[in-house]
């Protein structure tokens, strides 16, 4: 039973890598700030999957990777709450959320 497909480590690592790829491409490519935030969430998800997979396959005797995956989830939730508050402020002030048009960040 060693050659089951879900027992290979590199599949998880490459899935996490593809999530990182999509996230970086989306942060550069998206125009609206919400699109950039969605891409940031993809990057966070990839990091969590990476930590959990490495914990499962490299050091299966303790659970530090899973604990830090939970910590990453908390950080991502707090970050998205703050970012959406800032996006709301930007929309109230400028009436748009285009990332490229925000040239002045002062009053």
């Amino acid at each position: 039973m060693t050659d089951l497909l879900y027992n290979y480590q590199h599949i998880y690592l490459f899935v996490a890598l593809f999530l990182l790829f999509c996230g970086i491409a989306g942060v550069v490519y998206r125009r609206t700030l919400i699109g950039m935030l969605v891409s940031m969430e993809l990057i966070m998800n990839g990091a969590g999957l990476n930590l959990a997979a490495l914990n499962r396959f490299v050091s299966p005797e303790n659970g530090y990777g899973m604990a830090f995956t939970l910590i990453i989830m908390g950080i991502a939730a707090a970050e998205s709450a703050i970012a959406l508050g800032i996006i709301m402020l930007i929309f109230k002030k400028y009436r748009h959320i285009e990332g490229g048009d925000l040239k002045e960040m002062k009053d």
Binding site: I34, V38, E41, N45, G74, A77, L84, I87, M88
Partner: peptide
């Protein structure tokens, strides 16, 4: 956390 909270937050922002 993600499906229940973060995506609902983003949907409300949209």
């Amino acid at each position: 956390i993600y499906v229940g909270a973060v995506s609902v937050l983003i949907a409300f922002a949209i």
